[in-house]
Computed example of a mutant assay.
Amino acid sequence: MIFALGFVGLSVSFLNFAGTVGASSAPDDPRADAIVVLTGGTERVERAVALLVEGRASRLLISGVHPGTTQQQIATMTSGDLPLFECCVDLDRVALNTTGNALETASWVQEHGFRSLLVVTSAYHLPRASLELAEVLPNVELVPYPVYQPRLDLRSWYRSPKTIRLLLREYVKYTLARLRIVVSRGSGMFSNT
């Protein structure tokens, strides 16, 4: 009985997660002090650079860049202007995962004194990225900006086994991140008493 209730609860939670991801959309007039894009796809970086070119923010952090990748290569890949990269784009080569992206972004945000941040990543990754960033940047306004891959139909996710598997994997990662944060907060409460 408990197992069945747990399964139903997880199923409902997953359906809510998948529905939220599929229904997410970019803000009509996105603006912030700065932009962070979490690497993991060309579309993400291209969209973040376009937002910077449009004047939606004054500076861009590309988090999770491979150590061998240069600004010139990214500028070429995104059809960006190298002088724009030299003045207004920072590359984080340290982060290896979403938690690392959040930590490196927090350091960058604090160094520059930003109070608002456009968060650019794939729509399916946005809930976990936002969760991680909100934990390390509690006083910074996060403006989610989902990027949809053209070959991935997240609105009709239930029609594709490949998309269902992708969302299930991301849901598990998101759930584990939530649990880690809750446990971390709880252990912090007990260590202060």
Rank of each mutant, 00 (worst) to 15 (best):
Ala123Tyr: 04
Ile181Tyr: 05
Leu126Trp: 07
Val182Arg: 14
Leu82Ile: 15
Leu52Gln: 02
Asp90Leu: 07
Ile2Thr: 14
Leu152Cys: 12
Ala48Val: 05
Ser184Arg: 15
Gly55Ala: 13
Ala50Cys: 01
Phe14Glu: 05
Thr76Asn: 12
Gln73His: 07
Glu54Thr: 10
Glu141Lys: 15
Val136Pro: 02
Pro161Met: 10
Val8Ala: 15
Val21Phe: 09
Asn16Thr: 08
Ala123Gly: 12
Arg44Glu: 01
Leu131Gln: 11
Thr20Phe: 04
Arg185Gln: 14
Ala102Gly: 11
Glu54Lys: 14
Leu168Met: 12
Pro83Phe: 06
Leu152Thr: 15
Arg185Val: 07
Ala177Glu: 08
Pro67Tyr: 00
Thr163Glu: 06
Val119Gly: 05
Met1Ile: 14
Val94Lys: 12
Pro127Asp: 08
His66Thr: 05
Gly55Leu: 14
Asp92Trp: 00
Ser156Pro: 01
Lys162Ser: 10
Ser191Arg: 12
Ala48Pro: 05
Ile74Trp: 00
Gly6Pro: 03
Leu133Ala: 03
Met1Leu: 11
Pro146His: 08
Val147Gln: 00
Gly100Arg: 14
Val65Leu: 05
Asn97Gly: 09
Glu46Thr: 02
Glu104Thr: 11
Asn16Trp: 12
Thr20Asp: 15
Ala95Asp: 08
Arg59Thr: 03
Val21Arg: 03
Ser58Phe: 00
Gly64Phe: 00
Glu54Leu: 09
Gly6Gln: 10
Ala95Cys: 11
Ser63Trp: 00
Tyr158Pro: 06
Gly9Thr: 04
Arg59Gln: 10
Val89Asp: 00
Leu168Arg: 10
Val183Tyr: 10
Ala102Cys: 15
Thr121Arg: 02
Met1Cys: 13
Met77Leu: 15
Val21Thr: 11
Arg47Lys: 11
Asp81Cys: 13
Val53Gln: 15
His112Asp: 12
Thr39Phe: 01
